[in-house]
Design a protein around this nucleic acid. Structure first.
Length: 107
DNA sequence: GCAGTGACTAGTA
DNA sequence: ATACTAGCCACTG
């Protein structure tokens, strides 16, 4: 059994701290943990149902404010739907409203 | 230990 | 606005 590095733990910690109806970008988390953005995405991919069901991985999106495509795009659709259920407003392009960003306060 | 891969980002053309 | 490139760091073979 491979124990997850504390780096992943930090990533999960931040992701778990994202409030309901809010989202955060991979890059932002990467800066917080002090690692590359890819590692954040990798940590999310490592999340499995049953291991860390309490982690709102669906609230993690890319810097474009959109959901990234994984594998066949299955998880992608689920993620989008989950966010909609949480009350996150999406644009016609599938982009999240700037007000839905957690970290932030973007000009 | 090296090479390839990956749910990314930022910069340049 | 889009397309391509380079950088990023961890995991797998």
């Amino acid at each position: 059994m491979s124990e997850i590095c504390r780096l992943y733990k930090s990533i999960y910690e931040i992701t778990d701290q994202v409030p309901y109806g809010k989202v955060i970008s991979y890059g932002q988390i990467a800066r917080m943990v002090g690692c590359g953005a890819r590692q954040v995405g990798y940590a999310m991919a490592a999340l499995k149902s049953g291991s860390h069901p309490d982690i709102p991985w669906q609230r993690v999106i890319n810097s474009q404010g959109k959901v990234s495509v994984h594998g066949d795009g299955i998880g992608n659709a689920m993620q989008l739907e989950l966010l909609k259920e949480e009350g996150v407003q999406f644009d016609s392009e599938g982009r999240v409203s700037d007000s839905s960003a957690w970290w932030v306060a973007k000009p």
